[in-house]
Nucleic acid binder design. Sequence first.
RNA 1: GUGAGUGUAGCUCAGUUUGGCAGAGCGACAGGUUGUGGCCCUGUUGGCCGCGGGUUCAAGUCCCGUCACUCACCCCA
Length: 423
Amino acid sequence: MQYQRIKGTRDILPLEVYQWQYLENFLREYFKRNNYKEIRTPAFEVTELFARGIGDDTDVVSKEMYTFLDKGGNSLTLKPELTAPVMRAYIQNNLEQIAPLTKIYYIDALFRQERPQKGRLRQFHQFGFEILGTPYPEADAETIQTTYELYRELGLKDLQIRLNSIGSRTSRGQYLEILRKALMPFREDFCGTCQERLEKNVLRLFDCKVEFCQQIMTEHAPSILDHLSDEDRLHFKAVCHLLDVSGVPYTIDKTLVRGLDYYTRTTFEITSSLLGAQNAICGGGRYDHLIEDLGGKPTPGVGVASGIERLLLILEQTGGFPIPETNLIYIITLGESARVAGFRLVCELRRIKLNAQMDFLRRSIKAQLRDADREQANWVVILGDEELARKAVILKNMKDGRQTELALDTAAEQITAILQNQS
RNA sequence: GUGAGUGUAGCUCAGUUUGGCAGAGCGACAGGUUGUGGCCCUGUUGGCCGCGGGUUCAAGUCCCGUCACUCACCCCA
């Protein structure tokens, strides 16, 4: 048996890696343009960080983490999520001392031990960004607007933005009691998992796909939006207004509850019909207590995380990738001494920063040309013993097939001149 | 953790119903053109039919087991 990839991981092969590079280049340029600075954190952290940050009772922490003991007996975990590590770095490095407001982004690999399916992997990648230091709705609105605009620039269409407020911690606590009380009378009518949810995590009842459960919920579940504090309501209205003003389309979905414990007030999610059952391309929201929960000074924050594999899945279907340019100059040689001269020419071209390559398989001219074509070379240099004898090379344009003869000694300079002339 | 589907050439898949020589297209390689790519034509290469056991004169095909992958549930990006 050959060695195999670990379940839920993927090889990114040479022919598809340009898609990743295209996206990564775009993201770095986009974030630079929007004045976000990159942050990179280690691949693993102490397990405690995630238990505290994400919440012990969440699925991510309770059953999906890659956790192990190091030789010192410390419990460490491959990061299943990025906000908590970024907050740890923010606190540990006193970033709040540098400026009262911090805008940071990241592109990174994450690990969760789940059953893989479409758009879900055990090692997957996210990019995301965070705005730290402000409680005001402008930051919430910028987070959503910036994410939406990013997708729009990539050419994505038919995105649904779902927006909700789950209130501050106090008003949410009160609401959860009201919700539980309102649903208790129907306890027996719910499906098995929902009966458990009623005990452990009432908010999740909104997610159930069983029709009858949904019917009970629409008929009898009070909306969180009716139980927000005045401050929460004003904040939410302000976020909506700013989105209206900036032309970002959204729908308020009072059933949207994010699965991580740290969220307060604003939560949102953007979905695409081009994905499978896991149709969220990103999710995010406000977290006003996370930093203090992790031992920092009370600092409000808001942010978003977007799945890179899911984004690529969409771009693949919409033909969102530009064709990569090679600018390859392929040197074809025929004969022993021509091969040596050709090698020299390749080196010379590379020295002046041109993309040059020669055949290493000593193939026929036909095979070398076929290879040049496959490699999408724009130009081919043909150098056989015949040409060598008269100190010349043939330069062939692969687009129109025309050939000209150049002097071997000055071939590199002449090629440079031709390329410059052309563009 | 639960459920369903699929495993045959490098890739995409026929062949399984009704057991009887292991197939196609694409790709790769070569020839058609003494030293000229793509298009076309011809040929060549390429297989533990996922793995193990069973039934049978005979198994890719039927039976049992097992592994892997995919999709879905839970939950999330």
